[in-house]
């Protein structure tokens, strides 16, 4: 049975307040038995509504749970999605202030910036390419407002697909000029390689993931809009880092980006 609007709002508010205060809440199965994916997306919408009310704007979407490994772990057969807001974007090379994130992990991705709207259903990967202005390397720093990342699929959906912050590389490449399914990705932490991967890890090709999103949102009457940034999913497993670290990544044929994390503020 679907949760009523009051419960949806309460869970969305709790997640927003956890985000705003840098704290965590227990997972939904302990707080809202029987929560469905649809409920979870309504909770997500409430959490985003709160961010917009606080002055942020929507700048795009992210696709999560795109690898077979993560889908198996969560017991699902398709990705999920979250909303990118203006407060999540940092410039390439930025240092993220201490306290911004709770329990972050890093994912190397390919970002699509659209030049035309995509209105599903019925969108193919070819139409995604045609509607894409450019692709860039992207670090998505995922984070969870759920205690200890103890998540089921409904938890991560409700928590805006575990989105934290992201940076885009400065190189903008026409998607016609790169082999998206085979684009390699090398991610480093303080100069040491941590993971490598390639485009096919994302739904066979990152363009397939964007088509999935256009079609999934299209069935709800929501288009992907020209100018929006779409983070297409992790090219390799996410990895841990510590305050004080600098992370760099490179996507073959596209470019590189980096992000640093300030050490914890010294206690007075």
């Amino acid at each position: 049975m679907a949760l009523d609007d009051t419960l949806i709002a309460r869970h969305g508010d709790e997640l927003y307040e956890a985000l705003a205060s840098g704290s965590t809440v227990p997972n939904l199965r302990d707080r809202a038995g029987g929560v469905t994916n649809e409920d979870a997306y309504r909770i997500q919408a409430r959490m985003i509504e709160r961010r917009l009310a606080a002055g942020e704007t929507v700048v795009g979407k992210k696709i999560g749970v795109t690898s077979k490994g993560v889908q198996t772990m969560l017991g699902v057969f398709e990705p999920d999605f979250g909303i990118l807001t203006s407060g999540m974007v940092y410039p390439d090379g930025a240092t993220i202030p201490a306290g911004t994130l709770i329990q972050p992990k890093a994912e190397g991705e390919i970002a699509f910036v659209l030049k035309r709207d995509l209105r599903g259903p019925g969108i193919t990967a070819a139409e995604v390419i045609a509607a894409t202005d450019y692709v860039s390397a992207c670090f998505e720093i995922v984070d969870s407002r759920i205690s200890d990342w103890d998540i089921k699929i409904q938890d991560t959906i409700a928590d805006n697909a575990s989105c934290g912050v992201y940076v885009l590389g400065q190189d903008k490449v026409d998607p016609r000029d790169v082999d998206l399914a085979l684009a390699g990705m090398v991610a480093e932490r303080n100069g040491e390689i941590v993971v490598t991967g390639s485009g096919a890890a994302v739904q066979g090709s990152p363009a397939n993931a964007v088509a999935w999103l256009a079609n999934t949102l299209g069935r709800l009457g929501t288009p992907l809009l020209a100018g929006e940034t779409i983070l297409s999913g992790a090219l390799a497993p996410m990895y841990l880092f510590e305050p004080g670290d600098t992370l760099t990544m490179r996507v073959g044929g596209i470019g590189a980006c980096s992000i640093s994390f300030a050490k914890e503020a010294a206690h007075a």
């Binding site: 390699g184 090398v186 390689i193 490598t196 991967g197 390639s198 485009g199 096919a200």
Partner: peptide
């Protein structure tokens, strides 16, 4: 069946 995704920097 894809078994491994990697890049030459490995």
């Amino acid at each position: 069946e894809p078994l491994a995704y990697a890049a030459s920097g490995a």
